[in-house]
Every structure is written in C-alpha cells, then in structure tokens.
C-alpha cells in the first residue's frame, strides 16, 4: 500500500515537472524582426495547366520590414514584399502583430491591362489562423504562431530527424466575407519535428545556428481546396527556410547568395 502511494506520488511529481517544462516553453517561437531588415525568398512555379512536371523560371521576392506602426491598437510590423526584378509587378503589404505575427491587414497589389490596382484582403484579425497566400504569386504563407517545441531534444537544430516525435495540431474556421456572402473553410495546422527526409535541408543553415535553436515542420491544410502548405521554420531565420505547395517550391535565399541586397531594379 505504502509502495503504491510512493509510486503514485512519484508519477504525479513527474507529470507536474514535465508540465512545468512544457509551460516554460509554451510561449514558443515567434520570429522577431527589426525595421529595415530584408530577406529574399526564391519561388519556382509549377505550371499546372500542362501535363507533367512543367516548372516556370524561379522569381525572387524581397521581404522588407519597412516600419513598426500601430494598427487597431496593436503594434505591427509593416512588411513590404516586392519582386527583385522590376518586371515582377505583384506586391503585398502585410500588417503583422509584433506579438505573434497575426495578420491584421493585408493588401495585394497587382497588374491589370489598365495599370496597377490593389485590393485589401478580408482578414479576421481576431483569429490567429494561418495566412495562406491566395490569389497572388507572392509566397507569404505563414502559420499561426507561436510554434511550440513538441519535444525539446528532438527538435534541437542538430538532430538527424530519425527520432519519433509528437505533433501539435490546431484547427481553425476561416470565414471570409466577400461581396456580402461568407464562405467558411476548415483550416488545420500541424507542427512537428521535421521528417527525416527533410532534415538534411537544415544542413546549409546549421553553420550559423546554435544548438538550442528549434526547427519545425508545419503543415497547413484547407478543406475543399488543394492548398496544402508544408513549411520548415527555424528559430534563427526570419522566415520559413523551405516551403512546398502543389504549384510552388520556395526557399529562403541564404545571405551568402545575395548579389544585390537592395534588389528591386536588377
């Protein structure tokens, strides 16, 4: 009886300790940026209109943190995204909460036969749902932050990825009101330790990273659409270092590859 009581107390203590450790990390990972910071994403696009694996030439997009401003009472990063070549006319401006990168306002800018136009997306800024880049070639897909370590050791940056890991799943109802009609979609997000086949992608980034920086494989799914997004995030990087979607493959360009960081007019 006494033995059972001790075992029970020990189990309770273990559960309490493990919960404490988890609670300590519950804030998780949210990228932090500085005004003036820039990075470049390179996206290759698959032409789904034609048979087979037809890929169009990659385009580079400059992500530029232009300002920190208050919007709806919240401090936001104002992120300006534009093409590295002047022929890429699509642009986007994102107002993202400094606290959790929750999108509060998104403006898409695009070319038409009668010149440039812009459109503000309908964003539910009370919901921390993932941002899926839709109706734009700019790859600004973004998960709901923070990303939380599922298993401390398994997610440190220098793992081979061969350990089993649990995942954290979230579900959202995305309601978009367009022209007085609202459309509801279920969006799910799952984050976990990167699969083994993806773990080598981190190799190029590990030289600059510290061992305690976590890595995350995030999957975002939207029902009744083919918009499955898979991203790899790394605590030391300003944006996902890789993204795969059915019609695009995206990579964060390492700074060593920058030819002209200002871009825009190359």
């Amino acid at each position: 009886m006494k033995k059972n009581l001790i075992i029970s107390l020990l189990l309770i203590a273990i559960v309490f300790i493990s919960n404490s450790v988890y609670a300590g990390n519950e804030d998780g990972f949210v990228p932090v940026w500085k005004v003036g910071q820039k990075w470049i994403l390179e996206a290759a696009y698959r032409d789904l209109r034609v048979e087979g694996e037809a890929w169009l030439p990659a385009m580079q997009w400059i992500f530029h943190v232009r300002a920190k401003k208050e919007f709806n009472g919240e401090e936001c990063y104002v992120l300006h995204i534009y093409g590295r070549k002047v022929s890429q006319k699509n642009q986007a401006i994102l107002w993202l909460s400094v606290n959790d990168l929750r999108p509060l306002k998104v403006i898409d800018v695009f070319p038409t036969s009668s010149g440039m136009k812009y459109k503000e997306r309908d964003i539910n800024n009370q919901s921390a749902e993932p941002l899926v880049a839709e109706g734009t070639p700019i790859p600004y897909d973004m998960p709901s932050f923070p990303l939380v370590r599922t298993e401390n050791r398994a997610q440190s940056a220098n793992i081979s990825g061969d350990k089993t890991s649990s995942s954290i799943a979230k579900k959202f109802s995305r309601i978009r009101s367009i022209g007085g009609i609202s459309f509801k979609r279920s969006v799910s997000q799952k984050s976990k330790t990167p699969d083994k086949k993806l773990s080598d992608i981190f190799n190029g980034y590990l030289k600059q990273s510290r061992n305690n920086e976590a890595t995350f494989q995030v999957e975002i799914n939207e029902d009744r659409s083919s918009n499955k997004v898979v991203q790899l995030w790394h605590e030391g990087s300003p944006w996902a270092i890789r993204e795969n979607k059915r019609d695009r493959k995206v990579r964060l360009v390492p700074e060593s590859e920058y030819v002209n960081r200002d871009g825009g007019n190359n």
């Binding site: 400059i62 534009y82 093409g83 642009q91 010149g115 136009k117 812009y118 825009g264 007019n265």
Partner: peptide, 11 residues
C-alpha cells in the same frame, strides 16, 4: 522603384 508601382495603384 517598387514604391512607384504602389503610387500607380493609388497607394
């Protein structure tokens, strides 16, 4: 400049 396109769009 990228900002020129924003101006053209009316921003």
């Amino acid at each position: 400049n990228p900002d020129d396109l924003l101006v053209e769009a009316g921003l």
